[in-house]
Computed example of a mutant assay.
Amino acid sequence: MAQFQGIEDLILKFLKNEISPDEERLLQQWLDEDDKNKILFDELTNKDVLQSKVRAFYSIEKDKKEAAKKEFFMQLANENKVVPINRYKRSWGWIAAAVVIGFSVITLTINMLKDKASPVPSANVNSRTAVAPGHDGAILTLGNGKKIFLDDEQDGKLTDVAVKDHNQVSYVDGSERKVELNTMTTPKGRQFSLILGDGTKVWLNAASSITFPTAFVGAERKINMTGEAYFEVAHDSKKPFMVTVNGMNVQVLGTHFNINSYGDQGSINTTLLQGSIKVSVAGKRQLIKPGQQAQVSNGNIKMLSNIDLAAAVAWKNGFFSFDGVDIKGLMKELSRWYDIEVIYEGYPKDLFSGEIDRNLTLTQVMKGLADTKVRYRIEGNKLIILP
Score class of each variant (00 low, 15 high):
residue 67 A to F: 07
residue 282 A to W: 04
residue 45 T to V: 11
residue 288 I to V: 15
residue 42 D to A: 11
residue 313 V to P: 06
residue 372 T to F: 00
residue 335 S to P: 10
residue 258 N to L: 08
residue 193 S to V: 00
residue 138 A to N: 10
residue 18 E to R: 13
residue 223 I to F: 04
residue 8 E to D: 07
residue 362 L to M: 10
residue 332 K to D: 14
residue 197 G to Y: 02
residue 107 T to N: 15
residue 322 F to R: 07
residue 380 G to F: 04
residue 202 V to Y: 11
residue 245 V to P: 03
residue 259 I to P: 08
residue 117 A to R: 12
residue 380 G to E: 06
residue 338 Y to L: 01
residue 50 L to M: 14
residue 116 K to A: 13
residue 251 Q to I: 02
residue 62 K to Y: 13
residue 260 N to F: 06
residue 39 I to S: 14
residue 276 S to F: 07
residue 268 I to S: 01
residue 21 P to W: 12
residue 331 M to R: 07
residue 297 S to Y: 05
residue 243 V to K: 03
residue 143 G to R: 05
residue 288 I to F: 00
residue 219 A to C: 04
residue 112 M to R: 13
residue 148 I to G: 10
residue 21 P to E: 09
residue 103 F to R: 12
residue 19 I to C: 10
residue 86 N to F: 03
residue 127 S to E: 06
residue 152 D to M: 06
residue 299 G to H: 02
residue 127 S to G: 05
residue 26 L to V: 03
residue 109 T to D: 09
residue 26 L to K: 11
residue 164 K to W: 08
residue 42 D to Y: 03
residue 186 T to R: 09
residue 183 T to P: 01
residue 206 A to I: 09
residue 145 G to P: 12
residue 191 Q to K: 14
residue 296 V to A: 08
residue 262 Y to W: 07
residue 343 I to L: 12
residue 334 L to H: 10
residue 19 I to P: 11
residue 263 G to D: 13
residue 185 T to I: 06
residue 182 N to E: 09
residue 310 A to H: 13
residue 137 G to N: 06
residue 227 G to S: 10
residue 201 K to T: 11
residue 222 K to A: 01
residue 20 S to W: 05
residue 260 N to E: 08
residue 206 A to M: 10
residue 152 D to I: 06
residue 129 T to R: 14
residue 148 I to Y: 12
residue 317 N to I: 00
residue 200 T to L: 11
residue 223 I to T: 12
residue 130 A to F: 13
residue 279 V to W: 00
residue 263 G to S: 14
residue 185 T to H: 08
residue 165 D to Q: 14
residue 64 K to P: 00
residue 354 G to Q: 12
residue 281 V to Q: 06
residue 157 K to N: 11
residue 59 S to V: 05
residue 133 P to E: 09
residue 95 I to W: 03
residue 239 K to I: 02
residue 55 R to Y: 04
residue 339 D to K: 10
residue 339 D to N: 15
residue 283 G to V: 04
residue 30 W to M: 06
residue 229 A to C: 14
residue 224 N to W: 09
residue 296 V to D: 04
residue 109 T to M: 04
residue 47 K to S: 01
residue 52 S to Q: 15
residue 49 V to Y: 13
residue 289 K to Q: 09
residue 374 V to N: 05
residue 104 S to Q: 14
residue 298 N to P: 00
residue 58 Y to A: 02
residue 156 G to K: 09
residue 24 E to N: 14
residue 41 F to Y: 15
residue 208 S to K: 11
residue 86 N to K: 00
residue 305 S to M: 01
residue 343 I to M: 08
residue 37 N to W: 00
residue 371 D to Y: 11
residue 152 D to P: 00
residue 206 A to H: 11
residue 333 E to C: 03
residue 356 I to E: 07
residue 164 K to Y: 05
residue 290 P to F: 02
residue 384 I to H: 02
residue 361 T to L: 11
residue 215 A to R: 12
residue 133 P to H: 03
residue 58 Y to D: 03
residue 327 I to M: 12
residue 99 V to W: 01
residue 267 S to M: 08
residue 379 E to Y: 03
residue 215 A to W: 08
residue 88 Y to R: 13
residue 310 A to C: 05
residue 322 F to I: 03
residue 1 M to G: 13
residue 169 V to W: 10
residue 132 A to M: 15
residue 303 M to V: 15
residue 163 V to Y: 15
